[in-house]
Amino acid sequence: MTNETDLPRWEVFTQIKPGANYMHAGTIHASDKKMALQNARDTYTRRGEGTSIWVVPSDAIVASNPDDKEMFFDPSNDKIYRLPTFYVMPEGAKAI
């Protein structure tokens, strides 16, 4: 649901602890960077979920087209030798 008065959308990423990957938390509306950070804070980090926040304008995200799903992802599905579990552990190798 959108209407003309809606502010631009921003994607919110939060980091649970220092060094951890930033995880997508959701989407908020805001008119500028500062407001985006504050709205992200108020919407997604009020129960101790975060130590740091990234906000990214939604239109800066380049997404793959669902129609390209087969071209993008199918080729990897039948090549089990891409997975480490395909390989047998050499005897005597301990620290792999």
Binding site: L7, I28, H29, A30, Q38, N39, D42, T43, R46
Partner: peptide, 11 residues
């Protein structure tokens, strides 16, 4: 006026 501000004020 917007959901985000609803949360900000109640926070």
């Amino acid at each position: 006026p917007m959901l985000e501000e609803d949360l900000a004020l109640t926070n």
